[in-house]
Amino acid sequence: MTAPKPQRRARKIAMTPEEVTAFLDAERTCRVATNGVNGPHATPLWYLWDGEALWLTSLSRSQRWADLQRDPRIAVVVDAGHDYTELRGVELRGSVEVVGEVPRTGEPNPELERVEQAFAARYTGDQVVIDGRHAWLRLRPEKITSWDFRKM
């Protein structure tokens, strides 16, 4: 896997890789932007960051899924803060890949086993939910940009 491109702008307020991981582990919702036929399409999703990849579970019969089948490029933002001096966040960019069957029916998949367990621990009280409507996407970011205005 290729390492993400280094951040070139706003390096003074950029998070360290450890701060990025801690931030992504603490927050729960991301905003996913895809390239739709009629322009950008942005939607909120739960996610899992494993330190190298961002895992998303998406309805396989959705506008987002259709967009990503046509064009797998994606931008994902996780942000937090209320006042200007509290704002912080991470943007991850790259192309997603489908992992596992579509939709997910529970076929054995060692790669998804750890992801589904971690996702369940984070969001569903340790219960892995396989509903036959969602499928997994993995984003190995080509670029990560972060900001933490508390560093100003």
Results as ranks from 00 to 15, higher is better:
81 G>R: 14
15 M>R: 12
116 E>V: 07
50 D>M: 01
126 D>C: 03
20 V>T: 08
36 G>H: 00
51 G>A: 07
101 E>V: 02
28 R>V: 10
70 R>I: 06
112 L>A: 03
149 F>I: 07
2 T>P: 15
92 L>G: 06
19 E>V: 09
18 E>P: 12
143 K>Q: 14
84 Y>A: 08
21 T>P: 02
100 G>V: 05
93 R>P: 00
121 A>T: 01
22 A>G: 06
83 D>W: 05
29 T>G: 04
27 E>I: 10
131 D>E: 10
51 G>S: 06
83 D>I: 05
50 D>F: 03
8 R>V: 09
105 T>P: 01
15 M>I: 08
28 R>N: 13
30 C>R: 11
9 R>D: 14
126 D>N: 14
149 F>A: 14
92 L>E: 01
84 Y>D: 13
68 L>A: 04
18 E>M: 09
69 Q>T: 14
64 R>S: 15
3 A>E: 09
103 P>H: 03
39 G>S: 04
16 T>V: 04
101 E>Q: 04
40 P>M: 15
44 P>T: 15
16 T>G: 09
115 V>Q: 03
101 E>S: 03
136 W>V: 04
1 M>S: 15
116 E>H: 10
7 Q>E: 07
63 Q>T: 13
92 L>N: 05
13 I>M: 13
59 L>M: 12
45 L>F: 14
98 V>P: 02
